[in-house]
């Protein structure tokens, strides 16, 4: 109980949500890349802006309640959270302005590759920040530097 309240405060739940999202989005982007040459396949994605808005809104709501306690994420158009607060996202065909090729595939190689690089970077930055949080806790528990 004590440990739970220790971990469910500050930036840790926010970072956890971001990490969860970037991991799930990575699978979707990887699936797009493996299907670059599949006839009829349409590029899929998870909505980044929608997720960021939902996260921002949840953080603001938590601030109003005193800034402690777990994050309460509210479902949005494409995103759902289960009872334990884990993201249950369904990949959707969000981009409809790509060029449609003759094989009925709307691949956009450069964009997919750069989106994947950006997503990885965001994931790694989040992990580093989470690590810094845990290191701070560890220092506090040990009581010396």
């Amino acid at each position: 109980m004590f440990l739970e309240s220790l971990l469910n405060r500050g930036a840790v739940p926010v970072l956890e949500q971001v990490m969860n999202f970037t991991q799930q989005r990575h699978s979707v982007l990887v699936n797009n890349i493996s299907n670059f040459d599949t006839p009829g396949y349409k590029m899929q994605d998870l909505p980044v802006a929608e997720f960021d808005a939902a996260l921002q809104e949840a953080v603001a709501r938590r601030e109003q309640k005193g800034g402690a306690g777990p994050l309460e994420m509210r479902p949005s158009r494409h995103l759902r959270w289960d009872g334990s607060g884990t993201l249950q996202a369904e990949a959707a065909e969000l981009e409809d302005n790509n060029i449609l090729f003759h094989d009925d595939n709307n691949r956009f190689v450069e964009k997919q590759m750069s989106e994947m690089a950006k997503n990885t970077l965001r994931h790694n930055v989040t992990v580093e920040m989470l690590r810094a949080q845990y290191n701070g806790l560890e220092t506090a528990i040990r009581g010396r530097l």
Binding site: Q23, H123, N124, V127, L130, R131
Partner: peptide, 8 residues
Amino acid sequence: MLNSSLRL
């Protein structure tokens, strides 16, 4: 990504 997650 996996490596950085494992470093946690």
